[in-house]
């Protein structure tokens, strides 16, 4: 039997039994909360990501068009380190692979493997941040500050916001690791992995804009 409460379809056959009251959130298996065939947990997280996409798309879009017109961009970007940033790209892409594997094994209910790959993803996040701090310190020591010129303003602004997102992603994964010890939740793992992939996609545009061109 299906009941509809606040537009969200839930099954009332198992946990809620024969009660005529709508079940309280969290009392049913998580996959039974859905809206038009899409799990509510996933739908809600994509709604959150939509807001993030708008913020970062606007910033990166602004930097792309600024780069096409600003004559000093090419010279300024030649001072950023291609080797360090390429290593960081590989770290993030590796984190994406481990994140999707954690997602995969969580849905297969192989929780030991899911936890292992989540830990590896989190380590990729902290490795990225460590390398980024080293890179920032090098640039600051060479005298490149946010007020040096427009390139460095965009550079510190966008890579700084992205770095905060990587930090947030790593801490979210840490939180999920603690959470699934008590209550295995495949959607908690999925949403942590989705956030990581989003942060990775953003970096795929930051990398060429500030390091390669």
């Amino acid at each position: 039997m299906q009941q509809e409460g606040s537009g969200v379809m839930v099954s009332s056959t198992s946990a809620a039994g024969a009660s005529s009251y709508p079940p309280i959130a969290g009392t049913l298996p998580e996959e039974q909360y859905e809206w038009r065939g899409a799990p509510v947990a996933r739908l809600a997280f994509w709604l959150f990501l939509a807001g993030e996409i708008i913020i970062l798309l606007t910033l990166i879009g602004a930097s792309i068009f600024f780069r096409l017109t600003y004559p000093g961009w090419n010279e300024a970007s030649s001072y950023t380190n291609v080797v360090i940033s390429t290593i960081n790209t590989l770290v993030l892409l590796t984190g994406s692979l481990t994140a999707v594997l954690a997602h995969h094994y969580a849905f297969a209910s192989r929780w030991a493997l899911a936890r292992l790959y989540l830990v590896l993803t989190m380590l990729c996040g902290f490795t990225f941040l460590g390398i980024k701090v080293f890179e920032y310190s090098r640039e600051i020591m060479h005298g490149f500050l946010p007020n040096t010129n427009a390139f460095w303003m965009f550079y510190y602004g966008i890579t700084g916001i992205h770095g905060l997102h990587v930090l947030a992603g790593s801490l979210i994964i840490l939180g999920v690791l603690f959470y699934i010890r008590k209550k295995p939740s495949k959607y908690a793992v999925e949403n942590a992995a989705l956030y990581w992939h989003f942060v990775d996609v953003v970096w795929l545009y930051i990398f060429p804009m500030f390091y390669l061109t």
Binding site: S11, E31, E34, G37, L97, L101, A106, F107, A108
Partner: peptide, 22 residues
Amino acid sequence: AGGSAKGGGGHAEGVAGVRLYV
């Protein structure tokens, strides 16, 4: 709820494998 391979809650094990991810 949740069980279909396409779009439902259980898609991760149903639609793509480890080999594809690699």
